[in-house]
Design a protein around this nucleic acid. Sequence first.
DNA 1: TGAAATCCCGACATATTCGGTCGTATACTA
DNA 2: TAGTATACGACCGAATATGTCGGGATTTCA
Lengths: 152, 152
Amino acid sequence: MLKLTKKADYGLMALKYLAEHPETAALSAKDVADAYGIPAQLLAKILQLLTKHGLLRSHAGMNGGYALARDAREISAYEVIHAIDGPFFITSCTKGTKSCELTPSCTIKEPLARVNETIAGVLKSISIQDLAEHEQPTGRARDTHGLVALTL
Amino acid sequence: MLKLTKKADYGLMALKYLAEHPETAALSAKDVADAYGIPAQLLAKILQLLTKHGLLRSHAGMNGGYALARDAREISAYEVIHAIDGPFFITSCTKGTKSCELTPSCTIKEPLARVNETIAGVLKSISIQDLAEHEQPTGRARDTHGLVALTL
DNA sequence: TGAAATCCCGACATATTCGGTCGTATACTA
DNA sequence: TAGTATACGACCGAATATGTCGGGATTTCA
């Protein structure tokens, strides 16, 4: 439980791949799909979603494809997951503004909402660039990234 | 996405309910189910799971039922979720020790493993007692709980 | 201008998981 | 031994996730 969908995984992998190939103007969905052995048509739909949410720029025609819409440092894992899987909530009840539909007594909700925020915060602190960098775990210092703290 | 199953929710609610009724020796699955309007047989199975994992003590027969096996402060939300839904992983690939079955290139895994640890840490820092206390949001100071920090 | 490459998008099919029920066996109490 | 309760496996329907198909639109290039 509490796991990312494969679609979100695929999306993150694809963005990472694009971030690792900044020299090429654009890569087609098929290029990326082949690189990772994931279903091309499925990945295509995912990339379309990411495009619609402004994370990618697309270009049809020969030598077309997808490219990052922003610098890899400016795209967070959170945005990707959110674009693909929609808003997530830890509790099954936190739907919209109205209280839990189960019973008025689902008081579990409030404390877990903080967990939710924490997870979102962590995810927001991770950029596509971070994912791409971790590829080659050189000895370079790595303590300059995000710090997330939370008080319960 | 990334949400708890209803079973886990039910389990947390049930433990919270037990924590709120320390005076009674034991409460039956039906008692708890009725209190929240949860399907009794389903909750029964959940409580059985929690018992098997040592979070509850059960007692058959009249006036039997379930009681917390430990102090509510000593039972974390993490344990409950883990007992009910099994080990969770953010990435769909992090299965066991072997690398991602998809491709050798699922390098997304490593950075997200840290996210996973963070979430687990947050969940471990929340006790059933915390859930029960949040019930009555009195003016009492609440900054004495957990603090979770993570460097990516 | 036409063919090839590519994105776009909705519908459909399949697979897996989740939520819930049923039936029966077992344990304890009075 | 009657009644209350847990224990547990089998099953089922519904929801969700994953993957496929097919037709259409856009761009490039010869």
